[in-house]
Design a protein around this nucleic acid. Structure first.
Lengths: 205, 205
DNA sequence: CGAAGGTCTGAACAGTGGTTCACTTGTTGT
DNA sequence: ACAACAAGTGAACCACTGTTCAGACCTTCG
């Protein structure tokens, strides 16, 4: 033999793959899935179309990877807040909604891509899974709230799904506009209040 | 002159157009926008591809017409219930949610196509308008509720958007399954209760 | 009936975008 | 330096669909 893949080469490959996924994410966040053609993504990553297929067996596989990373990050953050932030379940729910909303407003493009933008089948399937995970983490905290009497009896899955849909709808809708500082704060406050009412918390007048 | 379009011919044309729109709606409801190619729609309507272009200047125009009709019907029904059904605003809201939910569950395919299924740009734009109209009719009844003191102060647009998103999320999610009689009734009841809580109505324990 | 002008057809066309592959370039070990 | 082989390239290929259009067929009216 006269050639064997060296660690240096491997890490260069890994870095290239990493870079590709990151750039693809940017393209998706800025222009949506529809404009994230293999050509466009390859160009953004500064590599040839052919090279993309050295890292992913198909465009769909790359799209799924992009979606999984971004959505996984979001779910993780939310789950952490809902589980480990201090306070009773209702306080944690409020905090979670606040974080969800703020993050989505800061990265509007990405939020839209994850929650609503038209996408190919493979990504659409991932999106269902993503929403299911969101629902599960919300449902858990609602269950806790019911258990300790701070929330009234209810089907936690229905309420959790509703929260996911409600927040997504409010945030993704372009009528809410770019939402500068003040308007954004107002929106977040209204969202939190609405979510607490939705779960049946008594605090929100 | 030797030929002029006769009323009989015109009504035959109108009927054909009508038939085309109806069949296209069926295709969309059953297979989603993605599978509603011009070829498939023409076949379903029993006409040639070319004839489709006698009625609509493009595939997008046909898709928009299909969407407008179906969505317009739904909004109309909901608006009527929210405005004209008897009772105070809270009762009307509950009734409206019940109707929205039942209709969506009865025509799951259509509901999914209207609310969530991936669609081309032109339809996506219509969908935003559709959701805006839903929001407006919900917001109106919420405003009334606030005005007569049955609902607490809140941003009606935020709550209305949330209701649209929440109900859509709960209904469209395939995990809720085909929802046979009993499960369906449970789901509707939970949805109504959740919606009333969401708007801040006091009745819902 | 026959001319005029419409309606209907579906194969051919054209744009798009994912995928491939013969080739060039780069890297490794002798 | 050179052989061996992997990585990188991008034009060509291919499948898929929306759209067109020349000709077939129908309807009207003198």
């Amino acid at each position: 033999m006269a050639y064997r893949k060296t660690p240096a080469v491997q890490s260069r490959l890994d870095a290239a793959r990493e870079h590709l996924v990151e750039q693809a994410t940017s393209v998706v966040a800025e222009s949506g899935w529809a404009n994230a053609s293999v050509t466009a993504v390859a160009a953004a990553a500064g590599m040839s179309v052919g090279s993309v297929y050295q890292h992913f067996s198909s465009k769909g596989a790359l799209a799924v990877e992009v979606f999984r990373r971004a959505s996984g990050r979001e779910v993780e953050v939310l789950a952490e807040v809902l589980k480990d932030a201090g306070g009773d379940p209702v306080e944690r729910l409020a905090h979670g909604v606040r974080v969800f909303a703020r993050r989505a407003m800061e990265r509007r493009g990405l939020a839209h891509a994850l929650l609503a933008a038209p996408a190919e089948q493979a990504v659409a399937r991932e999106r269902l899974e993503f929403r299911r995970r969101y629902r599960d983490v919300f449902a858990e905290v609602i269950r806790e709230g019911i258990a300790d009497g701070r929330l009234p009896p209810q089907d936690p899955d229905v309420t959790a799904a509703a929260l996911t849909g409600a927040i997504g709808e409010v945030l993704v809708d372009p009528l809410s506009g770019p939402a500068d500082g003040d308007a954004a704060e107002h929106l977040v406050a209204e969202l939190v209040a609405m979510s607490l009412r939705c779960a049946g918390a008594r605090t929100a007048g």
